[in-house]
Every structure is written in structure tokens, then in C-alpha cells.
Design a protein around this nucleic acid. Sequence first.
DNA 1: CCAAAAGTGTTATCGATACACCCATGT
DNA 2: ACATGGGTGTATCGATAACACTTTTGG
Lengths: 250, 250
Amino acid sequence: MTDATANHTLAYNPHVSVDCVIFGFDGEKLKILLIERTISEEEGYYSDKKLPGSIIYQDEDLDTAAIRVLNELTGLKNIFLHQFRSFGDPKRSSNPRDRNWLEKTTKMKVGRIVTVGYLALIKISRKIIFESENTAARWYDVKSLADMKLAFDHNEIAREALKHIRHQMTLQPYMLFELLPRKFTMTQLRNLYDLVLETKSDVRNFQKKMLLVYGLEQLDEVRKDVPYRAPRLYRFNKRKARAAKLKQGG
Amino acid sequence: MTDATANHTLAYNPHVSVDCVIFGFDGEKLKILLIERTISEEEGYYSDKKLPGSIIYQDEDLDTAAIRVLNELTGLKNIFLHQFRSFGDPKRSSNPRDRNWLEKTTKMKVGRIVTVGYLALIKISRKIIFESENTAARWYDVKSLADMKLAFDHNEIAREALKHIRHQMTLQPYMLFELLPRKFTMTQLRNLYDLVLETKSDVRNFQKKMLLVYGLEQLDEVRKDVPYRAPRLYRFNKRKARAAKLKQGG
DNA sequence: CCAAAAGTGTTATCGATACACCCATGT
DNA sequence: ACATGGGTGTATCGATAACACTTTTGG
């Protein structure tokens, strides 16, 4: 917005969108939610995957737009949601396939799009109804992302989201509980933790730390549907966590 | 970019800008670089301050735009620069004063602006020529931000940048050296560190840690221009830092 | 009884913290 | 001589890391 430079550009406005990288955890693998996009046209029919997203509405804040996308897709409210980075490469929507799809779905000529990336964490366990019309949403193993070609620069966006979740973990580790069911086993929590941080935690040390520092509540229940010794269930308790944190001065 | 929702909005495109929160350090205080904006009009004359920024050019990446803004303002290249968050409140440019200024400087009707915030760290010590035409750029103590009313939502952007620098510190502490002159005293480094993290480090422990972990090089020079015992100078050495990090397995 | 995963404590090491006195310099 | 900040080492505490065997359950 310096005076001298603004004039060059004002004839041209990019569109602004939000794209949501939605993670889930099934007890074993870290998952990402992608929607199928299918295009039929003269040159044939193809189908690939993309991140859920939307161009922002006229009077909508960025956060509001992301919340809307999530709600339209999952029907859920109060989802853990965090803006992590924006992407504005002028060529990010220049792939013919992407241009084509944009024209069909928006019924307009869409030029450049600057998109704001959001990270969302949801409990995969709740039976989510993916409500959005003519979109098929499915969970994919995060590990398989490397072998998929997503629309636009969505591969990069997803990679950055993974980096972000890893960084954020060190600042607000409680975000992991957004991915777990209300009652979970210690092994599930450890699996998740190690998946995100790419570590291998020691079973005993992990247990100790979680109980002390994160104030997990040990329940009198066990998980019953496993073909081996039934593991104990735990619950995350915000109050206890705060208390534990205070004791150690954090 | 879900099909069902895009149509509502496509008549309306926001502008996209970058705004740079540029920090410096004078050896004692953490500073922020602001530019003066003056408007004279029928209703009188007023002057206030804003972050340096620019609407992005047609074929310009976000990072490129931020680099351009910095270069136009300071003449410097290779500045530490980091995107930290985007701001898209539809009302962020609705203040009459801001609207007025936008119209005058862009000679156009500018509607909504979504801006991408960048954090930049520069060595205040270099005599920087602030080159940008008709802008007066000056360093302000970060502490005085609370008492200033900046243009647009620039107060919020600056606050978020400060939060960000604090967080990033824990991940990549080397960024502090971007703010210091090549040769600096331990006290300067400690002052800076404590300013950013809002801590009060113990002198001895701090010294120990810096030498061990961050691989500072002790020089055979001292700072000469002080009216008390001349303090030793140190230099940050990337190679040494890497070695030190490896020894402790990070 | 076998396979598979759950559960459980102690010791050693490392990093973080707390703490006080003498030194060099300019005025 | 004095005022101002510079420079230095040790002891304690707490957190993290390493490590192996027994228990439960279903098949």
C-alpha cells in the first residue's frame, strides 16, 4: 500500500479462498480428509482429489469462511481450527485441469486465486455425515499423500499443514486431544503423538509424563473390543491439566 | 471452492496486500519500523502511522511482494522474512480515514483488502537509507505501540507479529542474530533475548548456554565506546552452532 | 499353551536454576 | 575514590532417557 506502487496493479484483483487441511486419527493412522472432484468434458472424464475449500463471501472474515466450509462438509461446529499460512503463487491455479474445473463450477472466468490455509482437527470417531452436495469426502492415510497428485498446489498446502501441526505440538500439546475420542487408551495417544512428531516414545516414560504433566484422568473402564488384554481408558481433563501445569510453573 | 457456494461471491474480489512488520534492535530496545502517512483534505490535515506494505502485483508471489516492499523501503536484500498470518476482516479497511487515504494514493475505489502479514528482522545498525518516495520511515519502541493508533488493523498485525516472534524463538532461536550487528556483546544478546521472551535471564547461566548451545565465537576485541569496563565482543558462527547442536543431538 | 499387547519402577544422565564477589574503566 | 556495568564457577534440583519382565486375554 505504498503510494508509488499501487497503481500498477489495481485493475487486477485475485480471488481469495480458504482451504482446509482436516486431520483425523483412527487409533492407528493419521488421516486427511479429501474430496473427490470429477470432471467430464470433451477430452474425456477424469477424477482427482482436492482439499475442501471455498472462495470467501463478500462480507465474510477468513476464519468465518473456514468455519463455514467445515460446517457445510461435516455438519460439525466448534472444530479446532487454526490458520497456518497463505499461498499466493500466481501459477497455483494455472494447470488447465484446475482452470477447467474452476470455470465449470463457478460458471465464471476465475483468474488468480490467493488461498489461506487452515488446519482443522476432528474426532474421526464421531460418525460424520459429509453433507456437501455432489462432493464425495473420504479419509486418506497421510502417508499416502506422497503418491497422490492433488488439485492446485494442495499437495504443498497439506505438507505445510503437517509441518505446522508438528510445530504447534510443542507449543500447545493439548491439540492432540482434538483428534482422539473422549475416552482413549494410552497406546492410542502414544501412537498419535509419535505419528505427529515422528518419534518413538518409550512406553513407560510416556505414561508417566502424560499422567503428571497433562493431567490425564484414569477411568475405571477398559476397551472391550480387542482380542487381547483389555487396555485401560483415559480421559483428558482440562482442569487437571491446568493444575498439573501450574505445579510445574508453566 | 466447493461448487455450491462459489457463485454467491464471484462478482466481488477483494484486493490482496502484504504488510511488513519490521523489527530492529538498537542494543537496548526492540524497535518497529513505521511509515508516516499524511493526508491533507477539505476537513483538515492529519498524520498517522502505518506498517509498510503494498497491494500485490499481478504476477507476483506473496513472498516476492514482501521482498519488494522491504527492498523499496530499505534498499536491502536478503532480509530475514517470514509470513506469519493473514488478516481478512471485511471491516479492516472501513475506517473513513483509511478509505480516504486509499482513494487518494491508489486513485481508485478500493473495496475490501485481505492482507498477508510478514515478519522481518533487520540489523538496525547498518545505516539504512529509507528510499521510498514520499514516505518518512522511523523506528519506534515496540513498547510504545500500545499508545499509538496505527492505520487499518495494523495494531493487531503488529501484536500478532510479536506473538509470532516469541513462538518462533523456541523453534529457531538463531533468528535473534538477524537483529544484532555482526559483532555484539553478551549483554546486548541477553537484553534482546529477554525483551522478546519477556524473561529475565541469569547472566552466568545465559553466557554458559550461549557458548555451549549456540556456538558463539568469542572475539579478541572489545567494545570501545562505553564509559565503563569494555565488554567483549562475540560473533555468531553458523558452522560452530551446527556442531554444538549435533553434539547434543538436536 | 501360545500369541499379542498391556502394564509397571528404578537408576543414570543431562540440562536448568540459583546464587555473590571481584574486575576494569571513565569521571 | 566511586559509580557503573563486566566477568566468572559451583552446587542442587528436576526432567528426561534407558532399560526388562510379568500379566491378561482370546483363540
